[in-house]
């Protein structure tokens, strides 16, 4: 029982850390390079505990991100729910795939996410008009292998075993 609560705290803590990184002020030239921290953390947790962290958590996480970023409420939520759905369907494949393949797969997911936000922004009427909008996909995917190893090790250190 105590382990069960403990593991939830680790998950929440890492989500909070990701939120903080998502709104941390950066020098002006680098704002477009900011990786999609929260999305990467979400992808990892869905992959590790698809029965605990899934579309429902993705919805909540997306709403918090909308509130933090000042976007229309539900915008990030939609994109997060769709990405979480695909991860929850394909987590078996993603877990056993070698890291390069897994990274490529995550690249597609992150690209889909950024594309969804792009489309939704377009519908709302403030389309990002610079190509730099797509840079976070690149920085995220460069960081993914490190993120994956880091989160996996912290999960193992907390004594959590991946579940189905």
């Amino acid at each position: 029982m105590s382990e069960h609560i403990h593991n939830k705290w680790l998950i929440i803590l890492i989500f909070l850390l990701a939120f903080a990184l998502d709104i941390l002020p950066l020098p002006g030239w680098s704002i477009w390079f900011r990786p999609l921290w929260t999305l990467m953390v979400l992808i990892y947790w869905v992959m590790a505990f698809p029965s605990l962290i899934n579309v429902g958590s993705a919805f909540l996480v997306g709403l918090v991100l909308d509130l933090l970023q000042g976007t229309l409420l539900g915008e990030h939520a939609i994109a997060m729910v769709i990405v979480a759905y695909f991860v929850a369907q394909l987590y078996r494949f993603m877990r056993v795939a070698p890291l390069p393949q897994q990274t490529f797969f995550v690249f597609i997911l992150i690209f889909v996410y950024q594309l969804l936000i792009y489309i939704l922004q377009g519908i709302v009427g403030s389309l990002p008009s610079t190509w730099a909008y797509w840079l976070p996909v690149l920085t995220s995917i460069i960081l993914w292998p490190w993120m994956f190893v880091l989160l996996r090790d912290s999960r193992r250190r907390a004594g959590l075993i991946v579940r189905g």
Partner: peptide, 19 residues
């Protein structure tokens, strides 16, 4: 399907927030 439920909820939120 739960994913569809949450998607619809998110779309309702977007409409409500905008209108």
């Amino acid at each position: 399907m739960r994913a569809i439920l949450f998607l619809i909820l998110a779309i309702i939120f977007m409409f409500a927030d905008r209108r």
